[in-house]
Design a protein around this nucleic acid. Structure first.
Lengths: 305, 305
DNA sequence: ATTTCATTGTTTATGCTGTACGCACACGCT
DNA sequence: AGCGTGTGCGTACAGCATAAACAATGAAAT
């Protein structure tokens, strides 16, 4: 019997929906919408007003039908969310062979994910049952893994590396998005937010109790250029994978040489090979100045006195 | 007027609650509970039945009072969630100087976080407005940063490194927990889950369309020894930080030497320095066998044939 | 042409949720 | 004793997902 469609359990049915395995019945009234219409409507709401605004009522209202009509297309809200995830996974360009070898391919892939999460912040709010296993998600998964095979690593290490990069990108994106969400939701910028609570921080960030945090606050690095940190971390993660590949018995390293020095302040690569001859330490004057201020404020950590 | 306490805005009031800045009024009826009682009750419910089970009604029921009484202690549910977060942050042992230098300290800290997230999976479900800025969260933040100062890195790089490790641990923990949650919620093990969908995977994981994924599935590395991946990724992240510190102009590397070879299959360190003299490649017989099976199934990626 | 019947759309109802509002009581200070 | 403030409680409301019965549709069978 069941509610409809003759499916054998809503979870499995959800997967069948993902892969479009349900054959259109010849008999009976024709549906007013397509599944894709519903999913895209839901995605639109989530993009515009956040995941909390995605309710069955709201979707039905936009589509001009009643709430319960939707349940003829989808077993439940959970399955709809799965469909939404795979839908937007179709946006991300598939990873492919890049001139710089697997490292560049992986780097581009990670940045594409980062961009995707910023376009659809709600993705990271819902549970990730393994790399989303719809057609789009699987195509993406395959493409990244294919790039990784260029490292020559064995299968188990392959998925480990994938999980490492994926975990980092997701974690970093969540932090960045949460901060942005607070800003948008409350209507106050990060600076205003900190300012409104200044009376608390002043009472709390006392150097006696929290010397390191206090010095970092004085150095001005606690405020929000948080997105720069993503690039830093991404390069570190890729560095480590590269080193791991190089140390493997059968690992073939197809990466271009990249031993440029990096900024001692932010970790970005230092642009030009220095005109004076002296090794360049900071990537810009701003970073040098920040380092100077930081040294003064923190009682010179970062130099050997 | 407001509802009570004379607070000036619920968000700021929430922070004041976190830091216990509200002075107990001398006049009037004495409260029946403490804030901590309420928070701990909520934490208990979240631990036992998940974040979704935490409702004001439910908490009140456990405490033996009515729902609305709770609003005398807390401006709203959002603030209560903040308090819950900082409450459990008090459980994690503070990072400190370890025999192995900053690397060991950071490693222990990351593992402690991992354990915390597994004890209280709901933490990763709610938005992280920066490292949770209650007393416990800040103490933890300070302790980790203090360990990081041993690297001699400048302030901006310090927070970058912190964010890197934090993002990875959170991301990896989320994946691990989501998988476990699916398992517990649906009552089926991961194997049963995959088995119930075998008819879909068989139709979908065709080598023609998804060669890499298909070979990985055949190699048996797609199933769930997902938690091992955390150690792998953690070591890679720490490796990269170590390399970054070593390449810094003023970076002092206080780490013990650790150039043991690692398993070509899973990345774990290879235990003994090999009795035969030949360099050991796999950490165990199981890994060697898995690598063998994988090579047969995948048309030998991982060897130069 | 009429009946049959699978399938879709709608209506109604249930039990959750967070929380705004107002009232009654208890306690410390005057 | 009594005033005033802070507390605990009950009611009420809007919104949520969805179960179940029912009405409308339209292709196939007779």
């Amino acid at each position: 019997m069941e509610t409809g469609h003759g499916g054998n359990g809503s979870a499995v049915r959800g997967l069948e929906l993902l892969w479009g395995l349900g054959e259109r019945p010849k008999q009976g009234r024709r549906p007013a919408f397509t599944l894709e219409q519903i999913v895209r409507t839901a995605v639109g709401i989530a993009d515009a007003e956040g995941l909390a605004a995605v309710s069955m009522r709201r979707i039905a209202e936009r589509l001009g039908c009643t709430t319960m009509s939707l349940y003829r297309y989808v077993p439940g809200k959970a399955q709809l969310l799965d469909l939404m995830t795979d839908c937007v996974m179709g946006e991300v360009p598939l990873a492919g062979a890049a001139p710089g070898g697997w490292r560049t391919g992986l780097e581009r892939s990670a940045r594409a994910d980062w961009a995707l999460y910023h376009r659809h912040p709600w993705i990271l709010r819902l549970p990730a049952g393994r790399p989303a296993l719809g057609p789009n998600g699987l195509a993406w998964y395959e493409s990244v893994l294919r790039v990784l095979t260029m490292t020559g690593l064995p299968p188990a290490a392959l998925v480990n590396v994938f999980d490492l990069v994926d975990a980092y990108v997701r974690g970093a994106a969540r932090d960045s998005l949460d901060a942005a969400a607070v800003e948008r939701h409350s209507g106050v910028t990060d600076e205003q937010w900190w300012a409104a609570r200044a009376h608390i921080w002043d009472a709390v960030f006392v150097p006696a109790r929290y010397p390191v945090v206090a010095s970092l606050r004085a150095a001005g690095v606690l405020a929000h250029p948080r997105d720069r940190g993503f690039e830093f971390g991404l390069q570190r993660v890729l560095d480590s994978v590269e080193a791991f590949v190089r140390n493997q018995p059968h690992g073939r390293d197809e990466t271009v040489k990249r031993d440029e020095t990096r900024c001692a302040q932010c970790g970005d690569p230092v642009p030009r090979p220095t005109p004076t001859g002296r090794p360049r330490v900071y990537c810009s004057g701003a970073c040098r100045q920040r380092a100077y201020r930081a040294r003064r404020a923190a009682g010179s950590p970062g130099t050997r006195h």
